[in-house]
């Protein structure tokens, strides 16, 4: 009986030792790859940061008309955004390579899943980026036009348009990522409808005077003539 227990324990210990013997080099390789990756990522980040600073990349971005990029960037610096993105990308690649050193089968499965899902992620990111730029552009267009049309609720109107585009964009991105399913669609429809209704009420109440004045101008020609005494050009 004792011999049997000893044998079982011995076999178990042997299996654990063998497993450890198989696993430890992989773990060691993983740790080494990770350390190396971190070092490479840090060096790459420093090189990118210094190179971009040397060519005054932040100022150039402003000059090329992409000042909005500042708002999304860490420390309001597009240079930092690019350097940080490169750092994280290298780190992520290092972790994936490190995992493959631990277990190649797991890694191949992970890669297959990842590559199947990647186009959706890319599309979603693209939608979000374009949506973000579009929402800012349209928001600013509406704000300036509304101010020049003397609409008191110009800021509200601009915010409404901006959020309308953002909500639409996020719903489209989630749909691409296959997250939420019909819940997202229904939520989007409710939210979109709500925003449109709120905007209609806000504009209706905020610009009723303007509508009244426009009608008065259309029907009252003498007013128009008096106004034409002043020519800007």
């Amino acid at each position: 009986m004792t011999n049997q227990i000893n044998d079982i324990l011995h076999q178990t210990m042997t299996r654990i030792a063998a497993a450890l013997e198989n696993f430890l080099p992989g773990l060691l390789a993983f740790l080494m790859i990770l350390v190396l990756t971190i070092v490479i990522a840090f060096v790459l980040r420093a090189i990118i940061r210094r190179s971009l600073q040397r060519v005054e990349f932040d100022n150039r971005i402003n000059r090329w008309g992409f000042a909005a990029v500042n708002e999304w960037s860490p420390a309001h610096s597009p240079t930092m955004l690019i350097a940080q993105t490169a750092f994280l990308t290298v780190l992520l690649l290092g972790i994936l390579i490190g995992i493959s050193a631990l277990d190649s089968r797991l890694m191949s499965l992970l890669f297959v899943e990842l590559f199947n899902y990647l186009p959706h992620v890319v599309a979603a990111v693209l939608i979000l980026v374009v949506g973000s730029i579009l929402s800012r552009f349209l928001g600013r267009s509406v704000l300036i036009s509304a101010v020049n049309m003397q609409i008191q609720s110009a800021r509200l109107l601009s915010l409404g348009v901006k959020w309308l585009v953002i909500v639409l964009t996020v719903a489209m991105a989630l749909d691409h990522l296959r997250i939420g399913g019909t819940v997202v669609q229904i939520s989007f429809a409710i939210l979109f409808g709500g925003i449109v209704l709120a905007l209609a009420l806000a504009v209706g109440l905020g610009s009723k005077d303007m509508v009244k004045e426009t009608w008065a101008r259309q029907t009252d020609k003498p007013d128009r003539e008096a106004e034409e005494q002043f020519h800007h050009f």
Binding site: N62, W64, G65, A67, F137, R140, S141
Partner: peptide, 8 residues
């Protein structure tokens, strides 16, 4: 400098 859209 094209600080923003020129029409804006």
């Amino acid at each position: 400098m094209r600080v923003m859209d020129r029409d804006h």
